[in-house]
């Protein structure tokens, strides 16, 4: 299981949380998603054999939230 933390631009609307969480958790290979509203971070646990961190980053970007930094561990 791989863990990735994406730092986004400041989130402002609570409905953004649901958007990001639902979109990512529907992605195959994603185990869990947690969006931190205040620190504007997304923590994702996923199976690296099914999906890449860069693909997740792309998905978040496509929703309209630029990823400022990503940390995969």
């Amino acid at each position: 299981m791989t863990k990735a933390v994406f730092q986004l631009e400041p989130l402002t609307c609570p409905s953004c949380i649901k958007k990001i969480e639902t979109t990512l958790s529907k992605t195959a290979g994603v185990e869990s998603v947690k969006v931190f509203f205040t620190s504007s971070k997304v923590k994702v646990e996923f199976d690296e054999s099914l999906v890449q961190a860069s693909q997740l980053e792309e998905k978040i970007k496509n929703l309209g939230y630029p990823v400022l930094a990503a940390k995969v561990s």
Binding site: S15, K18, K19, T22, T23, G64
Partner: peptide, 16 residues
């Protein structure tokens, strides 16, 4: 509109 539509797709009623 984009934000409203995106939220609607995940069944969230947004202020947008």
């Amino acid at each position: 509109f984009i934000k409203a539509f995106q939220a609607l797709r995940v069944k969230a009623f947004s202020i947008e």
